[in-house]
Design a protein around this nucleic acid. Structure first.
Lengths: 123, 123
DNA sequence: CTCAATGTTCAATGAATGTTGAACAAACGC
DNA sequence: GCGTTTGTTCAACATTCATTGAACATTGAG
């Protein structure tokens, strides 16, 4: 049983909720980094550069409740993944356009961090 | 001189601001109806079905400040148009995906209204 | 000028948002 | 066991948000 946390069903993902979830710099950075990381899951700890432990926990919960990411407990960690397929099916083209634009945005710190994370992660 | 109201320059349109602006049911309905209306401008009054006069004025200002729509005074009215080209250039594919998903959404009232407006408008 | 139509501005209000720090919980390593 | 790591929960707080109603401004019609 790896389903501890509440996630909306794919069909219940609502566009306004997704837009609201992504309408925050921190959360947009999170999904941009997640997308950039491919299919590999990431942990909350890898985003501490974007804010405090509490803040990241808060934003991750928002993204999860909106249906943007999936969060799976793994020991003391949480493994975060983008819900690409669900989002693509429900809002075709949306995620790609957002991720592309968000990545193209100048977020040097976030990108530096992503590079650091993938190097240091050693995964 | 038809430029009375403040609009962000195309290059200053920010993704988080746009996402936040669209992350509201009323504003999402406004742009869905605008998009459905083609290139034709619409007035605030045509959205009164979505809320009070004051509320529409508020939401229209939000959309304008975020760079999503252009507002041009015309007598006592305001003519609203989507900033399609600017948005497409800045966030390729984004507007279309949002409009498509928002239109596909079940917003029967809004669509009924749009139909009423275009029939009654007599334009 | 007078009146009606279309929107804006203002103050007030209640709700939601995002942040912080302290305390807590759960899993892992020794 | 004990301590460390990882993340959550809680209360508090300041800020922003969305709505309302009243008043106002501007344009157009007569």
């Amino acid at each position: 049983m790896t389903e501890y946390l509440d996630h909306p069903a794919a069909d219940d993902i609502a566009l306004p909720a997704v837009l609201t979830a992504l309408g925050d710099e921190t959360r947009l950075a999170i999904i941009a980094i997640l997308a950039r990381n491919g299919e590999k899951a990431m942990t909350c700890g890898q985003f501490l550069q974007l804010g405090s432990k509490t803040a990241i926990s808060y934003h991750v919960a928002k993204l999860r409740e909106a249906g943007v990411i999936h969060v799976r407990p793994d020991g003391t960690r949480r493994l975060l993944t983008l819900r690409r397929d669900d989002l693509d099916r429900r809002f075709p083209g949306f995620l790609d356009s957002v991720v592309t634009s968000a990545t193209a945005m100048q977020m040097p710190e976030a990108l530096d961090f992503a590079r650091t994370a993938e190097t240091a992660g050693g995964m």
